[in-house]
Design a protein around this nucleic acid. Structure first.
Lengths: 134, 134
DNA sequence: CGTGTAAGGAATTCTGACACG
DNA sequence: CGTGTAAGGAATTCTGACACG
């Protein structure tokens, strides 16, 4: 499918879909016309990326998070860079720290919002059944 | 306690504590000197307000959410306004809608961040135990 | 950094019409 | 009838840039 369809199916703006590609998060085929061609797997992948971005993750952190690894173009670059140093997959302690910090940030935020959600829920329940209160 | 102590105990800036008061979310006593005097209950109340604000709720929405109702000063104003109309507690359908929308927003955001948190957790686990992967 | 927008051009698709065998 | 084609407009997409918080 082309970018417009992916956009309406995912609710992600065309602008952002292009941005994801620029950052190596998505790598659609190209038609002879130059138009991007996305497949079904890209629908899920784009939705996941969007969710991660809305959660506050940066694209740099998202790349290694994606299930099938970085998008082809980026994978090639990464492989090149890796060959320059060693050939294997070393965890990169700096990145690990970033993920650890991110996890803590997400957990704190979720806790905060869960508390708020419960407060709003309780209030709505109170409004609906004004039995016990003053 | 005075504002500095409350601030360090809650991690909320002095600026924000004064703001909460300005918006009717907190109503500390005043010493003869004019200094604000908070009691123990204000520690929890301030923390709750802070959590709600960090979750994106507006102060207008937070006021009716607080367990003991609006802070004294605001309560007086509200009572006045209520007397002008009727004497009872009517739910105010508009506000109810706002809360319903807020609940939906919070639930969506929590779902989004929970998904992201899980992705980060999985990734960290993968980094720690690179047994099964490629 | 993530996102919107205005700009100008290129490729695509649409419809209704005409032509052909 | 099924099919190709030229015509004109509308919708879509492309890239690179600027703006914003």
């Amino acid at each position: 499918m082309r970018i417009g369809e992916l956009s309406s199916r995912t609710g992600i703006s065309v602008r952002m879909l292009r941005y994801y590609e620029e950052r190596g998060l998505l790598a659609p085929q190209r038609a002879a016309s130059g138009y991007r061609c996305y497949d079904e797997a890209d629908v899920d992948r784009a939705a996941l990326v969007s969710s991660l971005i809305r959660s506050g993750l940066t694209t740099k952190l998202i790349i290694p998070l994606l299930p099938d690894g970085p998008a082809p173009a980026e994978a090639a670059e990464a492989a090149e860079a890796a060959e320059a140093g060693d050939g294997g997959r070393r965890p990169d302690p700096e990145l690990t720290d970033l993920f650890t910090a991110e996890l803590a940030r997400l957990e704190a935020k979720i806790a905060c919002m869960t508390l708020s959600r419960d407060a709003v829920r309780r209030h709505l329940a109170r409004l609906a059944v004004p039995a016990g209160g003053a």
